[in-house]
């Protein structure tokens, strides 16, 4: 059997030059949300992937947002689960990969991985989803598929702009996390849609470096007030928005009273599984959600 054709050099996001196959056939992904889901959307099925383990007693591994956004998960596709927080290097080796793709934030044992197969590292958190899709399309030869996805997204975005006139509104995305209120410059798919559409953000959020986040105390809550506030809640634990609202109440009792958006019924709870993804499916969903929430609606006058 002929070996892979080492057609070219590829410079990854760590600045390393790696010899990669021209058309990789056995890709192992070391990040479900940042690498596996984008690969699936580009029409490439990795042979193995990092995943998560159920926390509701089921214990079965899953791709975060995999079934929800792509219809693909470990139990529906021939993708081998290779570990959660830390991947099992022996399981990676057993898959005989011809390309390993890692995300900078889940980087471990790079030297050992490189011994198993060409390993490239992409910086999804720092350089964004567009960059990762572009690099993945380059690695897998799926530029045409990427162009199709991007065209559809731009069309949806234009429809949102025409309907809502985003420049007129301020928005912010916040979430209670580990006993603090986290705010992000751009909250993944939701944040990207809001910024691409041209919504305005409170100065505190605009001051956060691109790709960054900050944690604020209760006393600064009014500084993140906006016309509409989005709060991504965890849907994968079966707790629903109520748990997230309870977390906010624990942090700032009666928090709604401090936020004009909340008092006026414009504090929107969004499923984090969709909002946090970097996928085009999530972008389409977020465009529709924002449009539905912010489009003009008939006013009802009660007598």
């Amino acid at each position: 059997m002929a070996g892979p054709a080492w057609a070219r050099s590829f410079t990854d996001d760590l600045g390393r030059t790696v010899e990669v196959p021209d058309r990789p056939l056995r890709i192992v992904s070391l990040s479900d949300t940042d690498i596996t889901i984008p690969l699936l959307e580009l029409g490439v099925m990795p042979v193995a992937s990092h995943g998560r383990v159920g926390v509701n007693g089921a214990g079965a591994p899953y791709l975060r947002s995999g079934a929800l956004l792509t219809g693909v998960d470990f139990d529906t596709a021939p993708i081998r689960f290779i570990g959660a927080t830390e991947v099992d290097l022996e399981a990676v080796a057993n898959e005989r990969p011809d390309l390993i793709i890692a995300e900078k934030g889940r980087l471990a044992a790079l030297e050992t991985l490189q011994d198993l197969a060409p390993t490239v590292v992409l910086d999804a958190a720092g350089l964004g989803a567009s960059h990762v899709y572009s690099r993945l399309a380059d690695l897998t030869g799926q530029q045409v598929r990427l162009q199709t996805l991007e065209t559809r997204y731009q069309a949806a975005l234009q429809a949102l702009k025409d309907t809502v006139h985003p420049e007129r509104y301020t928005v912010s995305v916040i979430q209670p996390l580990n006993g603090k209120i986290s705010v992000y410059h751009t909250y993944r798919a939701l944040g990207r849609v809001l910024r691409d559409a041209g919504f305005r953000f409170p100065p505190l959020i605009d001051a956060i470096p691109v790709g960054g986040r900050m944690e604020i105390g209760a006393e600064r809550l009014p500084e993140i007030d906006a016309d509409v506030i989005f709060d991504p809640y965890r849907a994968d634990r079966g707790e629903g928005p109520r748990a997230d609202i309870a977390d906010m109440e624990a942090l700032v009792p009666n928090f709604c009273a401090f936020l004009q958006a909340c008092r006026q019924g414009r504090y929107v709870m969004v499923s984090r599984e969709e909002a946090i993804s970097n996928s085009y499916s999530a972008l389409f969903l977020m465009v529709s959600m924002v449009q539905a929430q912010m489009a003009e609606r008939p006013r009802v006058t009660l007598k």
Binding site: G105, R106, A109, A125
Partner: peptide, 23 residues
């Protein structure tokens, strides 16, 4: 720390030998 870097740091701090190499 940035949340993405924290993941790597936490695994390392927990005491892991997965990165073992001959060197």
């Amino acid at each position: 720390a940035d949340v993405t870097m924290m993941q790597t740091a936490m695994v390392w701090l927990a005491g892991s030998l997965s990165g073992a190499a001959w060197s």
